[in-house]
């Protein structure tokens, strides 16, 4: 449900230029590429956290961007989960009731009254996911959600992503983990130095990449 057209965004020493990129409901789009390729910048532009200097991003329905290390408020787990709804003006009681449902989905309902800052790394990401999902976004923009997490948490988070895809949400997943990209992606994009090198449906993208640079990156032979 997000469509980017002709976006150009420059920093000193870096420029991102994407002519067209779209993600549909019920689809996971994986964005892969070396560090510094512009993946996080692209994600922030898609999420509307920054406006592109040129071009346009269409969003049909709200999109929620999830930081690599999500910011948790100095409040309880439940208050964190309810935060998005409170921002939208929901009454506290109702927002909490809803948020508790989402905490159950991510397996944190037992922690509702704990301070959020006391959670472990994997629990933090799951809480951030619950907080994002509570506002019922049309799209989820995930910036390396499982980096540095233990396998059990990775599995849980991947299961959540699959479930949300099944529920019809559009998901853009930035990841360094190529195995994860293969497991989850319906389509994939290879970003290099701010340009889209290759994009396509998942099995083909990973098994028979067309561009030699994509091949080199996927086989781990690209040096950058």
């Amino acid at each position: 449900m997000i469509e980017a057209e002709g976006i150009v965004h420059r920093y000193p020493g870096f420029s991102l230029s994407v002519s067209r990129l779209a993600v549909e409901p019920g689809e996971v789009l994986a964005v892969v590429g070396p560090s510094g390729a512009g993946k996080s910048t692209l994600l922030r532009l898609l999420g509307g956290l920054e406006a592109p200097q040129r071009g346009r991003v269409h969003r049909r329905g709200p999109a929620v961007y999830l930081d690599q290390t999500p910011y948790l408020l100095e409040r309880s787990v439940l208050e964190n989960a309810a935060f998005g709804l409170r921002l939208k003006g929901w009454p506290a009681q109702e927002a909490r009731r809803r948020a508790l449902g989402w905490l159950e989905r991510v397996g944190l309902s037992g922690f509702a009254d704990r301070p959020a800052r006391a959670l472990s790394g994997g629990e933090r990401v799951r809480l951030a996911l619950a907080r994002a999902l509570a506002v019922e976004p049309a799209a989820l923009l995930l910036d390396e959600p499982t980096a540095n997490l233990d396998p059990a948490n990775v599995a849980r988070i991947e299961a959540l992503i699959r479930a949300e895809r099944a529920a019809g949400r559009a998901v853009v997943l930035v990841t360094h983990n190529l195995f994860q990209a293969r497991r989850l992606a319906d389509r994939a994009v290879f970003l290099l130095e701010g340009r889209v090198v290759e994009a396509g449906p998942a099995p083909g993208f990973f098994q028979r990449p067309a561009d030699p640079r994509t091949r080199a990156f996927l086989s781990g032979e690209m040096v950058w």
Partner: peptide, 15 residues
């Protein structure tokens, strides 16, 4: 130290 994280969070949730 908190400003960037808070702003991103609030903006990303549509605040």
């Amino acid at each position: 130290s908190r400003a960037e994280g808070v702003r991103r969070l609030v903006k990303s949730l549509g605040g």
